[in-house]
Amino acid sequence: MTKQAQHTKTKRYGMVIDLDRCTGCGACMVGCYAENNVPFRKDETDKMLSLNWLRVFKVDNGKPFPDTEVCYIPKPCMQCDGRHMEGHSPCVSVCPAVATDYDEPTGVVSQIYTRCFGCRYCMAACPYHARKFNWWDPVWPADMEKYLNPDVSVRMRGVVEKCSFCYHRYQKARDKAYVEGRDEIAENEYQPACAEACPTRAITFGDLHNPEHEVYELSRSKKAFRLLEKLNTNPKVYYLTSKSWVRRKADNYLEGESPADRKPAHKAETASH
């Protein structure tokens, strides 16, 4: 099979976030809220009660003034491939009602709000806190309901939600391609809202299997790493940094162990479906 034909069938959509570019501006978060009808409340200061599909963390190197450095780490759902890259991501394998699933053709971990019954087992399973629970009925004050995006269903109280890699945008692009008689979606036809909103273009998105997509090379770069790689969750969200202290913040290291000892983030890409 030619390379082209191979990735026609299965894609592994992924994201590469360049931490050397990210300024922590928060546009990606707001872009995500606006695109995905994420509700808000009067007080959002308890981040463990706040619906955030994407959260940008500020970390520092712990050194005293003026040797301090800071770095921002945006964190959406990692769209984990699971231990053996078979789609048994931590959350998918535990959901008793198949309300969250691994979409084989794209690698996107979906969430079906109308099937989820809110047991929160998936939240317990997700090491990245990517999953958020609707503790309250969502409320949009005044006329704010008017801005809700009709492509994304609004979630009811009592269910879990999370970053979907803006799957509805994929569906739209796919439908459009279908109508136009194409089987391939171009790289720029499917871009999530956060990548689009990022003013510094720190977020790159595409098919990790497709050598023509930017993420292909980027995810294989020496600067690439993933969060909590040792857990073998196999995220499809990669990060780039030139700072070794940032890499130390991304995983747990025993005394004397160093990120440099680790294999490059992108292990030989063997597991194609």
Partner: peptide, 21 residues
């Protein structure tokens, strides 16, 4: 701005439809 916006610009619909009008 060549396509880039700050978070405030992206949130403008909240002011448009919001309760402080």
């Amino acid at each position: 701005n060549r396509g880039s916006l700050c978070p405030m610009g992206i949130s403008a619909t909240q002011h448009l439809y919001g309760p402080s009008r």
